[in-house]
Simulated scan of single mutants.
Amino acid sequence: MSSPQAIVVFDIDGVVRDVAGSYRRALADTVEQLTNGAYRPTPDEIDDLKGEGIWNNDWEASRELVYRYFEAQGQSRRNLEVDYTELVAFFQSRYFGNDPERWDGYIADEPLLMSKDYLDSLTEQKILWGFFSGATRDSAAYVLQRRLGLLSPVLFAMEDAPGKPDPTGLFATVEQLYTEESLPVFYVGDTVADMQTIVNARMVRPDRAWFAVGVLPPHVSAASRQRIEQYSAQLKAAGAMMVLKNVEELTSEKVLMTRSNQY
């Protein structure tokens, strides 16, 4: 692409695909399993945990909720034996299913929140794009290539970089898209950790313009007005310059207008 105008990097879960009935459902299943059916976290409780900004990894989030449940029962986490390998295996069996050839788990029913046409519209306006996600590479590639029909998209996933809000994976994504450091970068995500990734990027590389764009995940968009306002305020407090109801509301016009106002 000659003379690109900006770079947009997308998170995947809650931005490209709706994971309320897949990743989050698998998370709740896992916590319920490891508490012997005594506790199943609600969507709001999962949001509250992720709102702390350090639980982007759903396996670790599952374990933390298990710990907190037993702590509320008067037990110390030091005395708890949560087999992390067993936890991950159970989570994956729910998310991917038990057939490694077919993937018949929750992943098969994830609604898409983004179209290939939308990405093509960014390309037409000389906006580069890629993906940085805390999802596993297999899961991310499944939605990007098999569901969206993208050919070899730029992607950095769980196995490729430290978890958010560490900006290392964001830097790697940007550098693979375009080596010059003059272009503004927009990172689009739906969690506090996503927004804090941009805040941390500014601290490490202050010479580039970094913009955090929040997106409401579908389960929040469908909630009460109070919940929407609460979630939006949380993202803005974490660094979001704007909060959108859907990723495709970040049009090329909005990107280019923000760019022109910056320079």
Rank of each mutant, 00 (worst) to 15 (best):
S152H: 11
Q176I: 07
D109P: 01
T173Y: 01
D117K: 09
F90N: 01
N200P: 02
R94L: 05
T179H: 11
P184E: 13
M114D: 05
T85E: 15
K164F: 07
L183P: 00
L87F: 08
S133P: 11
I198H: 09
A172G: 03
A193V: 08
P165Q: 09
P165I: 01
G97Y: 02
L151R: 15
M114W: 02
L144W: 00
E180A: 12
I107A: 07
Y84L: 15
A157H: 03
N200R: 14
G163T: 12
L150E: 05
V185W: 04
S121Y: 06
S133I: 06
M195Y: 00
N200F: 00
D104M: 04
L177C: 06
K126C: 13
P100R: 10
W129P: 13
D190T: 07
L170Y: 06
E175W: 09
E101G: 09
Q196H: 03
Y178K: 01
N98W: 13
V143D: 03
Y106P: 06
Q145M: 12
K126N: 15
D166P: 06
S93A: 14
P162Q: 10
A172S: 14
A140N: 07
L155K: 02
E124A: 15
P153G: 11
D160P: 00
G105Q: 00
R102Y: 09
K164R: 15
P162C: 11
F90V: 00
P100D: 14
D120T: 00
Y106I: 09
Q92A: 06
P153E: 02
Y95D: 07
D104I: 00
R137S: 02
S121G: 03
D190I: 01
G149I: 02
F90T: 00
T168L: 13
T197N: 12
V185G: 11
M114R: 04
F132E: 07
V185F: 07
R146I: 04
S152P: 00
L177D: 02
A193F: 11
L144C: 04
L148D: 00
P111D: 14
Y118S: 04
F132D: 10
T136M: 13
L128Q: 10
A157C: 02
R146D: 14
D109C: 12
T191R: 05
G163L: 15
D160A: 03
V192F: 06
V199F: 05
D117P: 08
G163R: 14
I127G: 10
T136C: 06
D194W: 00
Y118W: 08
I198R: 03
D120R: 05
G149T: 01
E86K: 08
T173M: 01
D166K: 10
